[in-house]
Simulated scan of single mutants.
Amino acid sequence: MPIHNYDGETFVAFIDLCGFKELMRTEDKAWRALDYLYSTGYQVLRENNNQNHIEGLFVSDSGVLFVRRNHQQGISPEMELQSLLSAVKKINDMMLGHDLMLMTSIAYGQFKYQERIEFVGIEKNPIYGNAYASAYFDNANGIPRIQPGQCRLVKRGLPDWYNDNNPNAGQFSDFLRVRAGDPQHYYFYWNVVTPDEIDRFEEHYKDAYSLKFQGMLKALKR
């Protein structure tokens, strides 16, 4: 289904496929990776859209997800964040099953998507807003550099209701942590089952960092 116009404040996630430039050295691997990304995104969005109002689009080796907010339905911002994190977790889990990792940055703010007239051979879908810009630039140039498999929430611009002491931030609040040395983000530990596993995962991830891609892949699958 097409994405209809949207203009308002919301959560936006920018997803990037890790190692795609390297995959492009082998055309078959690159095409398979893109096919997995598109089919996974489509499946997750189709399953979530009816109830959780998560929409998105995928272009080349990246994707943009956003929450279509509808205040008349009484869905709280906390629930909206839960829904987006749930979709991100599912996409990451499914891609990891294909030995592919993603990097995901999430930001809150103004977001605008506008449909344009289309004809054969061209499609125009303008995307605007500081939420998209913040998520995109954090993924591309954020400090510290985001690493394969990580998903993080940019603190700057978050609404007042979300802070470290809010007990109602959602069912995923225990999986969102400030990582040592980085006070600018909350990291979403999507690949652990319980919050108690986060510290152990961090140790595995640090050890795997020196082993680069394959080590990170192994750490995420623990």
Rank of each mutant, 00 (worst) to 15 (best):
Q51G: 02
L85P: 01
M24R: 12
L84A: 02
F119D: 13
K218R: 11
D199Y: 03
L23H: 08
Y189H: 09
D35R: 05
I127F: 04
P195C: 06
T40R: 05
Q184S: 12
D7L: 02
P77S: 11
F119M: 15
L23V: 12
E22F: 04
M103N: 03
R179Q: 09
L81Y: 02
T10F: 01
R69E: 13
N52L: 14
A131V: 03
L81H: 00
Y42Q: 12
G170V: 03
Y128D: 10
N191R: 07
S134V: 03
D28N: 12
D61I: 10
G181F: 08
K206R: 14
A87L: 00
Q110Y: 10
R69D: 09
N168Y: 06
P148Y: 14
Y108N: 00
Y189D: 06
K89I: 05
L85M: 06
L23D: 11
K212I: 05
I198S: 07
F172R: 02
C18R: 10
L158F: 00
Q51A: 14
V64D: 03
D99V: 09
M216Q: 15
N166Y: 00
A219Y: 07
R200V: 05
D196C: 02
F111H: 11
L37V: 02
S39A: 10
S210M: 13
G56N: 05
R179N: 08
C151Y: 03
S76L: 14
I143H: 11
Q114G: 04
I198F: 06
P148G: 13
I54S: 02
L176W: 04
I75V: 15
Q82I: 07
P2N: 15
H185A: 05
G19M: 11
G41E: 10
L17D: 12
Q147T: 12
H53M: 11
Y205P: 00
N163L: 00
I122V: 14
Q171S: 14
